[in-house]
Design a protein around this nucleic acid. Sequence first.
DNA 1: GTGGATCGTTGTGCTGCCGCAACATCGGAG
DNA 2: CTCCGATGTTGCGGCAGCACAACGATCCAC
Lengths: 231, 231
Amino acid sequence: MKKLDESLLSDMPPFSKLSRPQIREILDAATPQRYEAGVPVFSEGAPVERFFLLLDGHIRVVRTTPGGDQVIALHIAPGQLFGIGAALGRTTYPATAMTADECLALAWPNRLWLSFTERYDGFATETYKVVGERMGEMHNRIVELATQQVEQRVACAILRLVNQTGRKVDGGIEIGLPITRQNISDMTGTTLHTVSRLLSGWERDGIVQSERRKITVTAPHRLVLLSGPAA
Amino acid sequence: MKKLDESLLSDMPPFSKLSRPQIREILDAATPQRYEAGVPVFSEGAPVERFFLLLDGHIRVVRTTPGGDQVIALHIAPGQLFGIGAALGRTTYPATAMTADECLALAWPNRLWLSFTERYDGFATETYKVVGERMGEMHNRIVELATQQVEQRVACAILRLVNQTGRKVDGGIEIGLPITRQNISDMTGTTLHTVSRLLSGWERDGIVQSERRKITVTAPHRLVLLSGPAA
DNA sequence: GTGGATCGTTGTGCTGCCGCAACATCGGAG
DNA sequence: CTCCGATGTTGCGGCAGCACAACGATCCAC
């Protein structure tokens, strides 16, 4: 296995305050993992044994209801820790982490969590900051689901994806991971039919441009308008 | 000001592993506060300056949308820490904390957070556990809002209140804080009209019994049935 | 007691969104 | 090349729940 380079981690928030030798130690303790698209990294209810850092690719955090409905709680972008149930005293994962595309991640056994937080100053603070941000994001989703119409929710979801994974291409900004209408409906609590209709409409209006499993936003500002109150 | 007794804290999770002298120190650093019903303890967007422990009463964590809609994210019961933005690296409160009834709380300035976590073993772990639980609860709410019908959501909300604040009285279990139809609609993302209709129906069916600002569940098992899938 | 604010109930009409259904298109496996 | 599963589109009917509206009940301040 080829050695991982320290520069991999030095730009990432949880590690940015650490010295090179410290990063070296952390890297040496990690197990690199490759996952193909559409496979679970860990599953809801499974015992929490490891925590992860996503190096490349995108992860969907998914929950499945007894009734079989799927809800996508959030997306993980490269550079973020995930599966950090250990930090919150959990013994089982609260949700399933599914790869959206091909992913590369580092994994550490849970027992290292404690020593990381003790040994590396700033590590705990930085990761709890991430937890705080994710909580804020979930909070936003709740407000969104509780108060907004479907059209606004879908617009919000797409804007969020654009912000998190957007790539500038000519003619607009493209969402950086493969995404289906079904996926979007799972994010917004609606049906793929309604999403399809909305996107068709927006495409007619020149706001988005979409192909199979790909969406490009051509007029972000107009999408922002749609995401707000109907007024 | 009369001295607070150590037994106040000794049963509460974040402090349960501490010795009496340690609890004494913590208590001596605290400012006790009394709030009447319906007032904000802190407001969304305000700078995070203190964190709190609720001794008595109930707190609603509320978010208000630009459009004026209110959403109640969660309730805080006695014995729980709240306003712990400091632990998550936040500089402003993400939501407003509103008293639901008369409340008694202890407050500490933010700068003590760090020394608490350093000095008192188990304090950080226990509080992050609470964070984890709250996150799980929010996650549940998202799934609920995204997949369930209004009737099921309202049933869920009431069951949650019963679990968190329920008091056994003859004829059923009473929700331990004053609550209006409007409050429930703010928790479930619906209108007070719909909640009123549902409760009227349930009262006819003998599932609940309600007065002004008070709800008593007389047949919890039937409510559980309603909260599940329509099947 | 009186007035006003808060809280609750109930009826009516409308509509946004879902459920169902049928079909088009794409891409990979063999 | 063919078949099949995954994905996307579109039409249509129905209904859950919202908006609007009007009224009743309860509590508090003065």
